[in-house]
Design a protein around this nucleic acid. Sequence first.
DNA 1: AAGTTTGAGTTGACGTGTCACCCCGATGCG
DNA 2: CGCATCGGGGTGACACGTCAACTCAAACTT
Lengths: 154, 154
Amino acid sequence: MHDAPGEWLDEDEDRTWRAFFETQVLFWRRMARDLQHDTGLSEPDFAILSALLEAPDGALRPYELSEVTDYEKSRLHHHLTRMVGRGLITRSPCPDTPRAAIITLTPEGRAAITAALPQRAAHIRRWLLAPLTPAQRTALTEISHHLQPPLHNP
Amino acid sequence: MHDAPGEWLDEDEDRTWRAFFETQVLFWRRMARDLQHDTGLSEPDFAILSALLEAPDGALRPYELSEVTDYEKSRLHHHLTRMVGRGLITRSPCPDTPRAAIITLTPEGRAAITAALPQRAAHIRRWLLAPLTPAQRTALTEISHHLQPPLHNP
DNA sequence: AAGTTTGAGTTGACGTGTCACCCCGATGCG
DNA sequence: CGCATCGGGGTGACACGTCAACTCAAACTT
């Protein structure tokens, strides 16, 4: 015999993989570039600011932000530090609980994210939704769900 | 009227976007983690080493690597520097043409990439191909191609 | 021939991410 | 009570990427 699953993908698998891979690289590159150029925000800026915008008073604790954005605490901490430096948020010790921090949207941060939302929607439409037929959109949604959950072995 | 395209995505668009977004994040996280843990290589390591492996004598000039991998020259240069430091490749001045460099696979680099190829194929099967039905695979291939080319306005 | 342009290669500063580890208050339990 | 463990928060080192700019030889221009 030659090989069971083989050393590399067969021709069909390879076609799917290459199309997928190249498209993903292109897509995220376009999204990051447009977001940056149209709003001055990066992907993580956008994720954090929009989480804060949906929170009451525009304020959340870091671990809550970490759950919403699915960023590890260290990555989140570093990024929050940079965002404080740019005036988008503030980090203050929580008055009641000592050992706790609280992240708050500044007016500049609020202005930035509210201005960015429609831009972002336009980017998503332009690079993802518009090129697809309605059938392809639903297919993509289903495919995404299929790739998501099993998690048997994280 | 309320709004033409609106400030954010409508419910249906949002469902597609969220499913897509979250799945992509998860997918690339899994792929990078598995590649790292099973082979000690990062995504850019893998891309560069497999390009070199397919080249005659396992050697290419940086600008050729840049075309194959679609990395900007600066990113490529920095990464090559790190890879030289790890002994995966060598960078030598090209004998005939002065101002040119030549990147060569070391025995360690060749061993690393040949060991990594089947691992990588297994990761792709596990996280992308296996969870999908044959129909979904072909749909994904087509969707990827639809998202690719237009480029009207880079 | 002198001057401009082109392009491969390089550099440095800085933004982004990951890893391993530390700090310390709160919680739980022998 | 004393001690361990847990978890939110934080830090530093280093890997990865982007941007703007520089070098310098070859090619192109006038």
